[in-house]
């Protein structure tokens, strides 16, 4: 009963995003991810904070985080794909592409041209999320005991980052047309 209901919830959630098989597979995958815990009746075990009274997670926790992240991102392939064929091609390239040495060169080129500020942003927001993980929202109580000016500077920095990196309306430069 529990398994059936879980599947119904996730598949309907997927279908809610759009009438496409990709969303249904995305929902079903998330339901499948729950199966090991459901079948062992452990689905309500891991509900507390991770690394509750520590600065860093244990190796076991880190492994759990990486597996969860990996599985979630894998399901997102279906969520973002145009159709099932597109998702299938993406996954084929992702795993079978490891055998093609040219892909390593392409990856190197991509990393070479990677905007360094994005690395800074990713690290910055990971840190905020990590230190604010006990709250519903990461920055909710992050600087609660800090002087007002420090909080103001921090909030202003967040606003600056939003302005600086927000994606404006897609404006393909049309100089070459005009």
């Amino acid at each position: 009963m529990k398994v059936r209901n879980t599947f119904i919830i996730f598949v309907v959630s997927g279908f809610w995003h759009g009438a496409n098989w990709t969303f249904i597979v995305w929902g079903a995958l998330n339901a499948i991810y729950f199966l090991p815990l459901l079948l062992r009746d452990k689905n309500r075990v891991h509900t507390g904070d991770i690394a509750a009274n520590r600065l860093l997670p244990s190796l076991k926790e880190l492994k759990g985080m990486l597996i969860t992240f990996g599985l979630t991102v894998l399901a997102w392939v279906f969520f973002r794909a145009e159709d099932m064929a597109h998702a299938g091609q993406f996954l084929m390239d992702l795993f079978l592409g490891l055998a093609d040495y040219m892909n390593y060169y392409k990856t190197y080129r991509l990393l070479y041209n990677f905007n360094p500020s994005l690395v800074f942003l990713i690290i910055f927001f990971y840190l905020i999320e990590w230190f604010g993980r006990h709250n519903d929202f990461a920055i909710q109580k992050l600087l609660k005991n800090s002087p007002r000016i420090i909080r103001f500077i921090f909030y202003s920095l967040l606003i600056y980052l939003i302005f600086n990196f927000m994606v404006a309306e897609e404006t393909p430069f049309i100089y070459f047309q005009f």
Partner: peptide, 23 residues
């Protein structure tokens, strides 16, 4: 925050390369 934001932008204009100010 308007003052601080202005300061952030000024520092950005002066010190940061264009590739980290994509807008």
């Amino acid at each position: 925050s308007s003052l601080i934001l202005g300061l952030f932008f000024l520092v950005g204009f002066e010190l940061l390369p264009f590739r980290v100010m994509p807008n």
